[in-house]
């Protein structure tokens, strides 16, 4: 049943899917996630996108690296905690071989977090990405999506680097305890 939360999720998800398409993204790798479920439904229903559901985030980095070798630009959609599962492939494949991709990171351990074990990695995430030389831009309102995703696509695919976009809990509402 639709409610105000679903309407908000639909709105930012529509904007995000459109911005990814305009940014040239055609391959999506993801690990299933409640916060990005509306976005993933849209991307899966759109024949412009090849969507790969992965068992682990590092797989997603590698799938997108292979997709890029084949001429398709890609985005990985993952939780912040999943970045920890993807670090070796990000470093030794995406960064080392200059295989660009967008990382759409739904924030954990940040504003509104209810689970204490999510906090250490969420707190460290910006510095971990920074240590790898991966630029990180946070999106906190639907109005920012077009400009940030468009700019990040240009930066990633022209600069041949992975670029991380943080989906702030202010944008998504975050994950709530049920």
């Amino acid at each position: 049943m639709a409610n105000a939360t679903d309407d908000a999720a639909d709105r930012w998800s529509d904007l995000m899917a459109g911005a990814l398409r305009r940014g040239g993204v055609r391959m999506i790798a993801h690990v299933p996630d409640e916060v990005t479920s509306h976005l993933l439904q849209r991307l899966s229903a759109d024949p412009a996108f090849t969507v790969v559901s992965c068992t682990r985030e590092e797989e997603g980095v590698a799938v997108l690296a292979g997709g890029y070798l084949g001429g398709q630009k890609g985005a990985l959609i993952l939780q912040g905690s999943g970045v920890g599962n993807s670090l070796n492939a990000l470093a030794s494949l995406a960064v080392a071989y200059q295989l660009p991709m967008l990382l759409l990171v739904s924030e954990r351990g940040r504003l509104g977090e209810f689970n204490p074990v999510q906090v250490p990695f969420g707190r460290a995430l910006p510095r971990i990405l920074d240590a790898l030389g991966i630029q990180f831009f946070s999106i906190s309102a639907p109005e920012e999506i077009d400009a940030v995703v468009g700019g990040a696509s240009e930066l990633a695919f022209s600069g041949l680097v992975p670029v991380a976009l943080g989906l702030s809990t202010r944008l998504t509402g975050g994950k709530t305890l049920k």
Binding site: E58, E59, A62, L64, G66, G70, G71, Q72, A89, L93
Partner: peptide, 25 residues
């Protein structure tokens, strides 16, 4: 030939992404 030097365990996933992007290859 695409020679990997790292990302241990990820070769099959790189192959998967390439195969999906290039169905005729």
């Amino acid at each position: 030939n695409f020679y990997m030097w790292g990302a241990m365990g990820c070769a099959v996933s790189v192959g998967l992404g390439l195969a999906l992007a290039r169905p005729a290859l």
